[in-house]
Write a protein that binds this DNA or RNA. Structure first.
Lengths: 235, 235
DNA sequence: TGTATTTTATTTGTCGACAAAAATCGCCTT
DNA sequence: AAGGCGATTTTTGTCGACAAATAAAATACA
């Protein structure tokens, strides 16, 4: 017999788990552009999809709205938040600065166990590059830098940085085709250098490397935008 | 007849307004330490206090939890988030950097109408100093710097900065008695200098002034902590 | 008397239903 | 035929109630 039956079927869900399930899944679908910006979010549709009441769905949506991933206009439809292409420099400014700050702090405050996590993330990123899996590259790259931020041990910075990395995932996901050139290997090498200076606790070098790394990524993204012709997505 | 009676009394509340009312009020009470850290939050108590169901209360609490103002442990009580005195340097690091970044960006990107808002906030702060109203000083000082951040026009930075300013309000509120010395007037003067360099679009000077201003505030807070004996509040 | 176990009580998470706002559709008037 | 007006439908916000999970109290036992 299969393992799907315990007593009757499997309608048993632990008490507080419903919201987290729908929150995590919706979040992933938004960040991976399975739900592209502007997609309408229907509460009852989600309710019957997850086989639960509207209440936990609603709570998940409130959380997502708090993070700016969905927009809710009162008494009216709620939809996936748009990516703001007009003020993209705003995003780049914040991204570059957070790259620098988090990497610098990681060099100053990391503990040995942090390095293991960072190296594990880097290995996953390198594997994604070898496999030429662009989707995995995007996700593992974000995870790598998020691990560095965690090692910096400043929750205010890690909170903001993770939000920026999420937004970056959505932007890169739009143009992930272009990841199939020789640039990813360069990113792998730069990541290795960053790990080295973090381990050496060289804050200045970490700052310099992070800045160069971030600005190269920004240049890459901007080149992609220029090539693809700015806006190919509905506002 | 009075204006309080339309039909029976005044149970009429507009449809989507309940959550905002609860959210705003609870937020203010938390930031002003009317609800000190660790205070239990009772849903049914709030429900009967605001004369509404638990549902909108719950949504407001989810929003507040998303901003880190309350802590919710699953299936168990929810309470006002504690101020993390152990990792206070973490807060100071973030605060100093955000002071610098937002002031620098304001010097670069502000528009004429921004300056009017900033000057208005500065006038309110100066009035609070003259009136020796410590509570008003704390609030108007935060509003002043928030206005500068808005002029910098980077929503990622303003979001983080506003959160830091909120946390700073709670910390300063703990020790607001010490505000009754001659330091506030110095803050007023420094604010004036900051406005001047922003208006002159001198980004480097803005950065320098903001850094000095922030570090002086940090030093002031740390002195307060040393004098008061570190921890006089329940963890 | 102290500790373990059962019982009660309190509080949270979830549900189904109802009511208010908009949007959509249909009808009427000009 | 075009546009305005009213009715219907759809979707959201709110409510009261119920059930699970945990804490507190009461009881049993050594």
């Amino acid at each position: 017999m299969s393992d799907s039956d315990t007593s009757n079927s499997m309608p048993e869900r632990k008490r507080g788990s419903g919201v987290k399930v729908v929150y995590d899944l919706l979040r992933d679908e938004i960040l991976d552009l399975v739900l592209p910006p502007g997609s309408p979010i229907d509460e009852v549709q989600l309710a019957e999809r997850f086989k639960m009441s509207r209440t936990p769905i609603r709570e998940a949506l409130v959380r997502l709205a708090g993070e700016g991933l969905i927009d809710t206009l009162p008494n009216r439809s709620t939809m996936v938040a748009n990516i703001n292409f007009l003020n993209l420099h705003t995003f780049f400014d914040a991204l570059v600065l957070m790259y620098r700050v988090t990497t610098r702090l990681a060099a100053q405050h990391h503990r040995p166990e942090d390095l293991e996590v960072i190296r594990a993330r880097q290995a996953e990123f390198a594997a994604a590059v070898r496999a030429q899996d662009a989707l995995a590259m995007i996700a593992t790259n974000a995870a790598f830098h998020s691990a560095i931020a965690e090692a910096g041990r400043n929750p205010y910075f890690t909170g903001l940085f993770n939000r920026l990395l999420d937004e970056g995932r959505r932007i890169l996901r739009l143009y992930y085709q272009s990841y199939d050139d020789r640039l990813p290997q360069r990113f792998v090498d730069e990541h290795e250098e960053m790990i080295a200076v973090i381990a050496a606790r060289d804050a200045e070098a970490a700052d310099r490397l992070a800045r160069a790394h971030a600005e190269q990524i920004v240049a890459q993204i901007q080149k992609l935008f220029a090539r693809t012709g700015r806006l190919d997505l509905a506002l």
